[in-house]
């Protein structure tokens, strides 16, 4: 147990919901909120937009720094910053310090924020020591390891640890779960054909796992895989892992109609 967890004051977590979740799928944000509160955190949602990664990865340093500064200002008072995304948490944790390496004013602040920023499942397991969630999910799932979470933040066992405690859920590993789905942010549009070839391999591996549901921890990848599965007519429910862990699966799966029976 951490020092803060041992003290009486609840841990103050700033939820960085990510722009994609904010805009596309608020239910993931509510699931993250529920999981954090269940674990005893006091959660707040500072006003926020984007971590700046699209600008950063497009070579636009000025805008990425402006957006990063905005996040640093909004979240620096929190004990921890938690995001339901390995990609955005990785941006803050690994790339903010680099972005401000030559700025004597912002470098310490960027490093401080980086040190307390975590991806949701790794925060629950590694920092809070959560091993079990109270959730039920009838069906088999397979899990895609999103690249930034896996390789920048070492998120691999944490979601699986938590999924193992979900009643009724069976995890079936797909082949090449650690191989990129081909999303890559703007790459998916800029190099659509190549991105498509990569996601086709991924949906083939997903389908061969013969599960009811596909889960992952990053909405960008999920939208890519769900969009391809939908176009291919493969009836597999696609959800963010937080939705299942929080027992919040009333909303239709990603890219499924409101009347979905999945």
């Amino acid at each position: 147990m951490t020092d803060q967890a041992a003290s009486r004051r609840p841990i103050r977590v700033g939820l960085f919901v990510t722009c994609l979740v904010d805009l596309m799928r608020p239910s993931i944000g509510f699931a993250a909120l529920k999981l954090l509160e269940q674990a005893g955190c006091s959660v707040e949602v500072p006003s926020q937009t984007c971590c700046g990664q699209p600008a950063y990865n497009s070579g636009d340093r000025a805008n990425s720094r402006a957006l990063a500064e905005q996040v640093i200002r909004a979240f620096s008072h929190c004990d921890y910053v938690v995001a339901p995304s390995g990609s955005c948490a990785g941006m803050i944790r690994k790339h903010y310090p680099e972005l401000f390496a030559d700025d004597p004013n912002l470098a310490p602040k960027a490093r401080l924020l980086a040190g307390k920023t975590h991806e949701l499942t790794s925060f629950l397991v590694d920092i809070l020591g959560v091993r079990q969630v109270e959730a039920k999910y009838d069906g088999s799932v397979t899990y895609h390891d999103s690249c930034s979470g896996l390789r920048e933040l070492k998120v691999k066992s944490q979601p699986r640890t938590l999924l193992a405690s979900v009643q009724g859920l069976t995890l079936v590993e797909m082949n090449e779960s650690e191989v990129c789905c081909g999303f890559g942010g703007t790459f998916a549009v800029k190099y659509g054909e190549i991105s498509t070839a990569i996601v086709e391999k991924k949906t083939e591996n997903i389908a061969n796992a013969h599960t009811h549901t596909l889960l992952a921890g990053d909405l960008g990848c999920l939208m890519n895989m769900a969009g391809k599965l939908s176009r291919e007519g493969k009836p597999i429910a696609v959800r963010h892992v937080a939705e299942v862990l929080a027992g919040m699966t009333d909303e239709p799966p990603i890219a499924a109609p409101a009347s979905s029976t999945l």
């Binding site: 919901v17 979740v21 904010d22 805009l23 596309m24 799928r25 608020p26 239910s27 993931i28 944000g29 509510f30 949602v45 006003s47 926020q48 998916a188 549009v189 800029k190 190099y191 659509g192 054909e193 991105s195 498509t196 996601v199 939208m223 890519n224 769900a226 969009g227 391809k228 939908s230 176009r231 909303e251 239709p252 990603i254 890219a255 499924a256 109609p257 409101a258 979905s260």
Partner: peptide
Amino acid sequence: DKGYLRALPLASGWTDSRDFPTPQGGTFQ
């Protein structure tokens, strides 16, 4: 109705081969 869009302006790189999931509506914030 469908849960996805088959085409999006300026994003044909995506929608030529993939559906684009419909947002749930509103924003989290």
